[in-house]
Measured scan of single mutants.
Amino acid sequence: VPQRAWTVEQLRSEQLPKKDIIKFLQEHGSDSFLAEHKLLGNIKNVAKTANKDHLVTAYNHLFETKRFK
């Protein structure tokens, strides 16, 4: 089981690129989880459509539901 890579403050910070969060989610989330949160596909394309709040919610949801690969 992966550990949380970032704190809530870090997740919301401008310093953390959306692409980093997407990469983490794609590496650790199950396909059904990723599909549900519309996070499947090319990281660049996902970054265009997903806002930061959406990614933070998905990140927290992944750990709450433990839907890891």
Score class of each variant (00 low, 15 high):
14 E>I: 09
6 W>V: 03
9 E>Y: 03
6 W>Y: 05
51 N>T: 11
65 T>G: 11
13 S>N: 07
30 S>P: 04
27 E>G: 07
22 I>P: 00
23 K>R: 10
10 Q>L: 05
63 F>Q: 02
39 L>C: 02
23 K>I: 13
61 H>E: 15
4 R>E: 08
43 I>L: 11
66 K>F: 09
46 V>E: 03
18 K>W: 03
19 K>H: 12
1 V>A: 12
47 A>H: 08
66 K>R: 10
15 Q>M: 09
50 A>P: 03
68 F>Y: 07
23 K>C: 09
21 I>P: 00
56 V>T: 07
52 K>E: 03
51 N>C: 08
34 L>K: 04
37 H>V: 06
53 D>E: 14
40 L>H: 09
43 I>V: 12
13 S>T: 04
37 H>F: 15
38 K>M: 13
2 P>D: 04
4 R>C: 10
59 Y>Q: 00
10 Q>W: 03
64 E>R: 07
3 Q>F: 09
22 I>Q: 02
22 I>T: 02
42 N>K: 14
26 Q>R: 13
58 A>Y: 04
49 T>I: 14
26 Q>H: 08
64 E>Y: 13
1 V>Y: 13
35 A>K: 12
25 L>G: 00
4 R>K: 09
6 W>P: 05
36 E>D: 11
15 Q>Y: 13
69 K>M: 05
32 S>N: 08
18 K>I: 10
43 I>E: 07
23 K>F: 07
25 L>F: 04
44 K>C: 15
52 K>R: 15
30 S>H: 10
7 T>I: 03
5 A>Y: 13
51 N>Q: 09
50 A>W: 07
49 T>V: 10
21 I>M: 04
38 K>D: 10
20 D>M: 11
32 S>M: 09
12 R>F: 15
57 T>Q: 12
14 E>T: 13
63 F>A: 01
7 T>R: 02
45 N>Y: 15
58 A>P: 01
44 K>N: 15
37 H>E: 05
32 S>K: 08
23 K>N: 09
53 D>A: 07
53 D>C: 07
34 L>T: 01
43 I>R: 08
58 A>F: 05
21 I>H: 01
30 S>I: 05
62 L>R: 00
2 P>N: 04
29 G>S: 09
49 T>N: 12
43 I>K: 07
34 L>D: 00
67 R>A: 14
43 I>A: 09
2 P>R: 04
38 K>F: 11
36 E>Y: 10
